[in-house]
Write a protein that binds this DNA or RNA. Structure first.
Lengths: 146, 146
DNA sequence: ATGGGTGCAAATAATTTGCATACAA
DNA sequence: TTGTATGCAAATTATTTGCACCCAT
């Protein structure tokens, strides 16, 4: 987690960008939040440490980080976009009920390669698998019943 | 394609909803458009046949159809949501350059099942694989060169 | 005939942008 | 010091909603 703060900070510096107080705090929030937060959530969390930060600085920083490939903007469900700090290859479980997003690490899924059909469509840069459903919490902890 | 018009129309009627002139034309546009159009694109196409239709009727109809599971709202890239008429199990190639979305039919991908890890997260209703990259057209037809 | 559907306009949500000031390098 | 980043406010984009009238059933 502390490593993530360093990776993101270093990534910004390497792009010749300034590591401002605001950016550092945004990066800290992102590194500590595994829930794929949206801009609003990041804003609220950062405001606790930098009460004067503005929403558009959060938006601009999130855009900067994803333009640099340091975080990933995702939109699994209607509503605000969310941001994923995890830059290793992984997949997702998405709860269509509460919006929960959980990372999935599975070498078998990482091994999926585009077939000839897909290669004919274009060059593939990334493959990701999405499992949509209803999370355990939304089902009231009932694993076996409907 | 004509079959799709019937399936969507029937789907509406089965839900006890009225098959209005506007809805029928929207359904016709959707059935004929394989490009996963956004609301604006559907609106423009329908306007050629029903010049008085309003944008919010298009939005409302698209919402109605996806609520009934007759079409699927997808959002692969930033910007407006897009709608997928294809209700058979399939996957997608997404061009991050021009926004092209192509359907992929591949039984091997359809066969992906949630592992124990994923089952612990919740009940999975759908699995879909996304290939992101740059389409042939955006690469200028160059299949082998960078 | 009658209740759901439409069109209009206004509201809301999510995000972006212009500009003067502030601060990291 | 110097230009990039910030904060404020206003603009844009995408979508939703209230309401009176209309039309499919």
């Amino acid at each position: 987690m502390e490593r993530r703060v360093e990776q993101l900070s270093l990534g910004l510096r390497r792009s010749g960008l300034r590591l401002t107080h605001q950016r550092l705090e945004i990066v800290r929030v992102l590194a500590a939040d595994e829930t794929h937060p949206d801009a609003e959530t990041v804003y609220e969390a950062v405001r606790m440490r930098v009460p004067t930060i503005s929403m558009d600085t959060v938006y601009r920083t999130l855009a900067t980080l994803s333009d640099r490939g340091l975080i990933t903007r995702v939109q699994f469900l209607p509503g605000p976009a969310r941001y994923d700090v995890n830059q290793t290859t992984h997949h997702h479980f998405v709860c269509t009920c509460c919006g929960l997003v959980r990372d999935i690490d599975d070498p078998a899924l990482d091994a999926i390669r585009p077939t000839a059909d897909v290669r004919r469509m274009g060059r593939t840069d990334a493959v990701s698998v999405q499992f949509r459903g209803v999370c355990t919490a939304c089902r009231g902890g009932k694993t076996r019943r409907t």
